[in-house]
Simulated assay, not measured.
Amino acid sequence: MNLISTRIITDQVEALIHFYEQVTGLTATRYTPDFAELKTKTATLAIGSTRTLQFFGGNQVAQPAQNRSVIIEFRVDDVQQLFDQLAASLKGAIVQEPTVMPWGNQSLLLRDPDGNLVNLFTPVTPEAIEKFNGS
């Protein structure tokens, strides 16, 4: 089994697309006004409007802007450089500036427009680098 995609249900499709395009440098593929995807080498972040919930049984299935337990994580080449580039434009989204975590990743924590926690990280210790390089 492989994790292929994580989907965010939102009332703010365009705001989330803009945020994630900005922080990832990727361009979203917009399939409809209610659904878009940002594809990375290993997985996809999907963004769906609350209107898409009708296909899954109705609005009671998921509620936008209610997450307080999941962190969406992206490995980046240089989190400090990305922070330096984006700090001014992401000022209100920054939860924690780049910090080295005990497990060896330098992490930048943000909140997207719906309040979802986003971790942009770069492995920096030999152990963390080895873990992500598969050595």
Results as ranks from 00 to 15, higher is better:
Thr125Glu: 01
Leu16Val: 04
Val100Thr: 02
Gln60Asp: 13
Val79Cys: 14
Gln96Trp: 03
Leu117Trp: 13
Glu21Gln: 02
Gln81Met: 12
Trp103Arg: 03
Ile4Val: 10
Ala128Ile: 03
His18Trp: 13
Thr122Ile: 03
Ile4Phe: 05
Thr44Ala: 15
Gln81Thr: 08
Gly25Cys: 03
Ile72Lys: 04
Ser5Thr: 05
Gln96Lys: 04
Leu53Asp: 12
Pro102Val: 01
Leu86Ser: 02
Gln81Tyr: 11
Glu73His: 08
Arg111Tyr: 10
Ile71Cys: 07
Glu130Gln: 10
Leu16Phe: 05
Gln106Val: 01
Glu73Ala: 14
Lys39Leu: 14
Pro102Met: 04
Gly115Ile: 03
Ala65Cys: 09
Thr52Arg: 12
Glu37Gln: 05
Leu26Glu: 08
Thr122Asn: 04
Gln80Lys: 12
Tyr31Met: 14
Ile4Gly: 07
Tyr31Ala: 15
Ile71His: 04
Ser5Cys: 08
Phe19Leu: 02
Leu38Thr: 02
Leu16Met: 06
Thr10Ile: 09
Ile9Asn: 10
Ser49Glu: 07
Arg7His: 14
Leu45Asp: 03
Thr125Leu: 01
Pro98Val: 05
Leu53Met: 12
Ala46Asp: 14
Asn116Lys: 03
Arg30Thr: 15
Leu86Cys: 01
Asn116Met: 07
Gln85Tyr: 10
Thr6Pro: 00
Glu73Lys: 06
Ala36Asn: 06
Ala28Thr: 03
Glu14Trp: 04
Ser135Glu: 13
Gly92His: 12
Phe121Ala: 04
Glu73Tyr: 10
His18Met: 13
Phe83Tyr: 07
Ala46Pro: 07
Ile72Val: 06
Gly57Phe: 12
Val23Ala: 08
Asn2Thr: 09
Ile72Tyr: 06
Pro113Ile: 05
Ala88Trp: 11
Gln63Tyr: 09
Lys131Gln: 10
Val13Leu: 06
Gly48Asp: 09
Gln60Glu: 13
Ala46Met: 14
Leu53Phe: 13
Gly92Tyr: 12
Ala62Tyr: 12
Phe55Met: 15
Met101Asp: 09
Gln60Met: 10
Thr32Ser: 15
Asn105Lys: 00
Ala46Gly: 14
Gly25Trp: 01
Gly104Lys: 01
Glu73Leu: 11
Leu86Val: 01
Ala36His: 06
Gly115Ser: 06
Gly25Phe: 00
Asp114Trp: 07
Gln80Arg: 12
Gly134Asp: 03
Thr29Leu: 13
Val23Lys: 02
Lys91Tyr: 15
Arg111Glu: 14
Gln22Asp: 13
Ile8Phe: 09
Thr50Lys: 10
Val23Ser: 05
Phe74His: 01
Asn67Met: 13
Tyr20Val: 02
Thr40Lys: 05
